[in-house]
Design a protein around this nucleic acid. Structure first.
Length: 271
DNA sequence: ATGGCGTTATTTTAACGA
């Protein structure tokens, strides 16, 4: 099975690219992030024509996650249990009213429990969104641990845009990010806690760093200068990781006009 | 020095991204 994850930065802007990618890379299951549309705006028809079923969750122009599969799509969940929400009016009211955002979608595809994840950005180290990011990751870890406790042999893929560069090898400049999010110790600890639970970054052995990235800023000629970050991951449960045969970043998709700022990560699993 | 670019929408500026 060939599984990919890709922050497409608007599915409506990237539809032709995504369709070409599915064909060119012979993808069975594609998890997408930042679809940036509501369910009624998602181009389901195009995927149907290509032979893929799609599950999507999107409430507005922000966030939005989807899974397209040609090997089945069952038991769809539109968020993970107890998924934290963001309360933009925190402190202004005695009543907390967090809104759960469209950042996680689960579905079983070809026997694999796939979660398409768009981890909160965090914005800055002192922003309420940073605390939200850490809470969100802690809640995800708790769920991931429970899923494995319930069934240690479960084949689970936690994939998507994690908005964390786990090691210094995963950013083009440690100095540049020193006072920014994505490389702070609490973020790295939160990511590592999920790895420690049993979910392995299966691409690293096939694509050793430094200099292997999945995201390059649109500005400052970051892509041609090879100044990127590795923040998109396919984390696999032990049973699934044992089937990992290959994994790559498809840098071709960051080239040319109309590219997302993220490139897809692709994993191949033995049947 | 907060640009540089790209996306969205209750668009002609603002929010968000990382």
């Amino acid at each position: 099975m060939r599984l990919a994850t890709w922050n497409v930065n608007s599915i409506r802007s990237r539809l032709d690219r995504v369709a070409d990618f599915l064909d060119r890379q012979d993808i069975d299951v594609l998890a997408m992030q930042e679809t940036k549309c509501r369910d009624d705006q998602f181009p389901f028809e195009r995927f149907d024509e290509l032979g893929y079923e799609v599950a999507h969750v999107g409430f507005n122009q922000w966030n939005g996650v989807a899974i397209a599969s040609r090997v089945g799509l069952e038991n769809v969940e539109l968020a993970f249990p107890e998924q934290p929400g963001f309360d933009k009016n925190a402190g202004e009211s005695l009543i907390s009213t967090p809104i759960v955002e469209s950042r996680a979608l689960g579905a079983t595809c070809g026997g694999v429990r796939v979660w398409s994840l768009y981890v909160p950005n965090g914005r800055t180290l002192t922003d309420p969104h940073y605390t939200y990011k850490l809470e969100w990751l802690a809640a995800l870890r708790d769920n991931g641990a429970k899923w494995l406790a319930d069934d240690p042999k479960a084949e689970i893929a936690l994939v998507g845009d994690w908005n964390i560069a786990p090691t210094d090898d995963d950013v083009w400049s440690v100095e540049y990010f020193a006072d920014k999010t994505h490389i702070s110790q609490p973020e790295r600890d939160a990511f590592e806690a999920i790895v420690d639970t049993g979910y392995a970054d299966i691409m690293r052995p096939f694509a050793p760093g430094p200099g292997v990235y999945t995201y390059w800023d649109y500005t400052q000629l970051r892509f041609p200068r090879k100044e990127g970050m590795r923040i998109d991951f396919i984390l696999s449960s032990p049973a699934l990781a044992a089937r990992a045969k290959d994994a790559i970043v498809d840098r071709e998709e960051r080239k040319g006009k109309g590219a997302s700022d993220h490139a897809p990560v692709i994993a191949e699993f033995t049947d």
